[in-house]
Simulated scan of single mutants.
Amino acid sequence: MEIILLERIAKLGQMGDVVRVRNGFARNFLLPAGKALRASKANKARFETEKVHLEARNLEARAEAEGVAEKLAGQTFVIIRSAGETGQLYGSAAARDIVEVAEAGGFSVARRQVRLDRPIKTIGLHDVQIDLHPEVSVSVTLNVARSEDEAKRQARGEDLTRRDFYDEPEVEEAAEEAPDLAEVFENPEDAEHAGETAEASEDGAQEDGTSDAGSGEDGASEGGTEDKTTA
């Protein structure tokens, strides 16, 4: 179907352009929304008559949209949703949700003005474009989180979608090092004597262990001999 555009339409053309579009797109959207007219002779003549008025109305609407864009640009809106440990939402955040939080923040946004290719299905910070006017667009940030606290942490730059976020932190216990004897004793001779005493104690402990082991073996041998003699 051939139509006359009454305003700028992205990827179609500017006001006054005659373009061909699919019948369904024209009948279901462009014509009912007042964005276009059928390209008949009567409508072409009508457009030329109303062109000045349409251009003035467009300039007024654009100026109003630019005023809203100055206040809306850079805004962040928080949406609280239930999600798993990896950040996957139990559901999604769609255009209607963005409209609701924007209105709660004092901005009037129509659902058709929200440009969202697909619903948001993970927590995090998401950039969303809002077309306030065919010639005026603005970008806002959608902070999707499981709680207000997590929303604040995400705003500070934390990534809460990592799998290891919920892992228990590893605690490394520092090994206790034996003190330096030279630092314990003021007199070097005392430190040397303490070191010799410690070494002697270790040697004695080793000898005692060897002696005990030998005694055990001798006892076992003698016991075995006596048993054989008795038998």
Rank of each mutant, 00 (worst) to 15 (best):
P134S: 15
D17W: 14
E202N: 06
F77L: 09
D180C: 09
Q154G: 03
A102S: 10
L160I: 09
K71V: 05
D218K: 01
A231V: 09
E186C: 00
R8E: 15
P188V: 05
A191G: 04
G224Q: 15
V171D: 03
Q14W: 13
A155M: 11
R146M: 11
A36S: 02
D17H: 12
V99P: 05
A94V: 13
G91W: 10
S137V: 05
K71P: 10
F47C: 02
A93I: 07
L59E: 11
V136W: 04
Q113R: 05
G13W: 06
A200E: 08
P188G: 01
L181A: 04
K44D: 03
G209M: 13
D131M: 14
Y90R: 03
E64K: 15
S82K: 13
K44T: 06
E7A: 02
E135Q: 10
L31V: 02
H133K: 09
L132V: 01
E70N: 01
I9A: 03
Q113Y: 15
E158T: 13
V19C: 00
D212H: 03
A83W: 02
D117I: 12
L132W: 03
E176N: 02
L54R: 12
R8M: 13
G87V: 04
L72G: 05
T225Y: 09
V171E: 06
N58S: 06
A151G: 06
E189C: 01
I80K: 01
Q14F: 10
L160A: 09
A178G: 09
F25W: 13
E7C: 05
A174I: 15
T197W: 14
A155L: 07
G216K: 14
A213W: 01
F165L: 10
G209V: 07
E202A: 12
D212V: 01
L116F: 13
N143L: 08
I79Q: 03
R22Y: 01
E55K: 07
A231T: 11
E217R: 06
E2T: 03
R27M: 03
E135F: 13
G214D: 10
I9G: 04
T122A: 07
N187T: 04
R111E: 09
N187F: 07
L6Q: 00
G223I: 00
A36H: 00
D190N: 04
A83Y: 02
E55H: 11
R27P: 00
G224M: 01
M1N: 09
I4L: 07
G209H: 01
E217D: 05
K121E: 13
V114L: 11
A213C: 02
R153Y: 00
R118D: 08
E176H: 15
E70D: 12
L5C: 06
R156V: 07
L59Q: 12
K11S: 15
V144T: 06
A94G: 08
F165M: 12
F165A: 15
A39F: 04
A194V: 08
F29K: 05
E173G: 14
F77R: 13
I4V: 11
M1C: 03
R153M: 04
D227A: 11
T229K: 08
R8H: 12
R162D: 08
G219Q: 03
R112V: 07
S221E: 08
K11M: 11
N58V: 01
G34C: 00
G157E: 05
N43A: 02
A220R: 04
N58I: 11
A83V: 03
A213Y: 10
G67D: 13
E55P: 07
D218Q: 00
P32T: 00
D190K: 13
N43H: 02
F77N: 03
I9M: 05
V136C: 07
E168H: 09
N28G: 13
